[in-house]
Write a protein that binds this DNA or RNA. Structure first.
Length: 327
DNA sequence: TAGCCGTGGAA
DNA sequence: TTTCCAAGGCT
């Protein structure tokens, strides 16, 4: 088992011991044998494709991302191609991936890359961090997966694997800690190429085997080294608090966005507040989304907040005819 | 830093 | 049916 004290006290050189090397071997072998064939993992995938995939994958499962990613790559194969279109087109093409502000930020990142980096996705973590919508995880992931850099990638999967395998806990703490970042850095193989595969492999292990709810320990390549299993699978030491959804502003925002995404013309503002009599549209999904919005029976003030919030966030634009997606 | 920001599938 | 969770980021 890996000695956690060694890893946590790593100011200086990353701790290297036989058990860490053993973990590297086991995970890298397992990953080589079982990795999913995802399009953004292929050798011919551009840095831009990897960046887009990483943003889409923020809080959204692979199975829902893949088809949208394929459409984006077909339509916008380069940052410049996306930057040349209105941001509203990015929001529309985002579809129902959720958190549509990510689409807005990706469009803004494409513009920044086009004007500030000659159209090429930057390769350093600092430059990536300066782009909108790119935080510590995504910057490290792009540097590692697109440019082969040796970076500690720390996502929810890797945090969970480390919590169990090394720290003996059922789940990582609610918030990412500096100790976890040091731990991840200390676990990284020395060779850059190995470190990239290690990051991807541990992430894959968390996604497929060491899952949040019912981990498949019987299929785990490092079960024999797992501190959590050795400790008798202790329960989590905190209760995760779920996000409210029904009756919240977020639900109303989502319903409004569904209307705007499918609208080819500005949507009259009154239609968001009054049950539609004459929609002014051909029968279709816009009216269906409006009906769904009104079925929420949201308070008038809540609807006002949602519209104001979407305008403020830049996800919607007020025009004389009503509301539409931004230019 | 805790709270907010969408959506849909699995348990 | 309800709850939980998914390759986070931003303020």
């Amino acid at each position: 088992m890996v000695c956690i004290e060694n890893l946590l006290s790593a100011d200086a050189p990353a701790p290297r011991d036989a058990s860490t090397a053993r973990l590297h071997e086991l995970v890298l072998d397992w990953f080589a044998a079982t990795a999913r064939d995802l399009p953004w993992r292929r050798d011919d995938c551009s840095a831009w494709g990897i960046l887009v995939s990483e943003v889409m994958l923020q809080q959204t499962p692979v199975v829902r991302v893949q088809p949208v990613w394929e459409e984006w790559m077909q339509r916008w194969p380069t940052p410049a191609a996306l930057a040349a279109e209105p941001s509203g087109e990015a929001v529309r093409a985002w579809g129902r991936l959720g958190y549509p502000r990510r689409a807005l930020r990706l469009h803004a990142a494409a513009s920044a890359i086009t004007t500030g980096h000659g159209g090429r996705v930057p390769s350093s973590v600092d430059e990536l961090l300066a782009l909108p919508g790119i935080g510590t995880y995504t910057a490290a992931a792009v540097a590692a997966f697109a440019y082969g850099r040796r970076e500690a990638v720390v996502d929810t999967n890797i945090r969970r694997v480390h919590a169990r395998l090394v720290s003996g806990r059922a789940l990582p703490a609610p918030a990412l800690s500096a100790a976890e970042l040091r731990l991840a850095a200390g676990m990284l193989p020395e060779a850059a190429a190995d470190s990239v595969r290690w990051n991807a492999g541990v992430m894959e292990l968390g996604a497929l085997i060491c899952t949040a709810r019912s981990p498949k320990c019987g299929q785990c390549p490092v079960a024999a080294e797992c501190a959590w299993l050795a400790a008798g699978e202790p329960a989590p030491d905190y209760n995760p608090k779920g996000q409210a959804w029904h009756g919240t502003d977020r639900q109303v925002r989502g319903a409004v966005m569904a209307v705007l995404r499918d609208a080819e013309h500005p949507v009259r503002r009154e239609l968001f507040f009054e049950a539609p009599v004459d929609l002014g549209f051909e029968p279709g999904s816009v009216s269906a989304h409006l009906a769904a919005l009104h079925a929420l029976n949201a308070e008038h003030s809540q609807l006002e907040r949602a519209l104001a919030g979407l305008l403020e966030d830049g996800l919607a634009e007020a025009v004389p005819e009503g509301l539409r997606l931004p230019r």
